[in-house]
Amino acid sequence: MEELIRCRGLSKRYGKVLGLEDLSLSIPAGKIVGILGPNGSGKTTLIKMLCGLLVPEAGEVLIDGKPVGTESKAVVSYLPERPYFSDAMRISEVVDFFEEFYGDFRRETAERMLQTLGLDFDKKISALSKGNREKVQLVLVMSREAKVYLLDEPMGGVDPAARDFILKTILTNYNEDASVLISTHLISDVENVLDDVIFIKQGRLALYKSVDEIRMEKNKSVDALFREVFAC
């Protein structure tokens, strides 16, 4: 299968704190991959390197064969851990903003999904609940026809019904030739939608396997294996 993401020897420290240590991996097209690890293990550091917000101290990243830069950013759709829309913007303005900014944005798709949420497009971001704010942001990110979707904690702090909406939105909208990376610690909620999982432990790659392999070899869910690998 065609390789979409390649990382070689990625390392990064924050002062004395380890971010990533010699991390190498290759992710093919057409997969939904979970990046799993406890808080502070390096998940967000990895995602930020893939989308160019952080520069590794050593190693390199290739997205669709190209180093991280303008070309790679055009094919990467990134959902940050925290919402970044201005509170003062209206939903309709955020949609305009995305359309102007991204050539691969599908406006009709975004509007259709926002309608199913029953949200008034004139509403300001500041008037939305936390759950709705996350949903709006995910809808916009998934409405791009990207090759790589990087979703950093897409379900952090929302209720189970909102989680269902978010998973459904991801499944319905990702492009079949694209890859989706989901970083999360809510493993039991996402494991059924994942092809493969990557465990990151203290900045290092601890495991990279398919969910089926884990179930067959260990007779365990990913959630149960995670608790075992990262037991305190």
Partner: peptide, 8 residues
């Protein structure tokens, strides 16, 4: 989507 699993 109905089953809540990955298309693959």
């Amino acid at each position: 989507v109905e089953a809540g699993v990955n298309p693959n």
